[in-house]
Amino acid sequence: MSNIHPLDTRKSQSGEIDAILRNLMGIQGVSAAAIVDNDGFVTHIQRDSEINTDAIGASVQVVFGAAARAAQHVGHHATNMVICENAEGFILSTPVEAGFMLALVTQRDALLGRVRFELKETIPVLKKLFSHYLTH
């Protein structure tokens, strides 16, 4: 039987979420990794420079929401990822659970396939972590 107290469980899950974000930051060209809740609030973040978290959180939700709506209009059903290609890099956002999103900001030299692969592989785990995290 586990002797781990629920509060510790939540803490370790939150710690693991931070570890996942740190791992994403280790990929070449990634400059920020964040979890954004459904109100656009950044709940977890790792970054290598200052970012306006309020603005980026809301923008990520708004851009993802608009893209998901556009996808529905053309019959594409669920949106798994939105990739924003910019002059100086990419912003990738992926839904996690209960309106939470994982967002990555990269520099131009990031390898898109590498970042996208890591995101795709990370999401199932994050979904599980979040469903535990939110119910404890």
């Binding site: 899950q13 693991e16 996942i20 785990v125 535990h132």
Partner: peptide, 20 residues
């Protein structure tokens, strides 16, 4: 199986990093 999701998550991350 996800009896301890934190351990599973960490192991997957390490195995993925090893592969990549």
């Amino acid at each position: 199986t996800a009896s301890n999701i934190v351990n599973v998550s960490e192991k997957m991350r390490l195995k993925r990093a090893e592969f990549i």
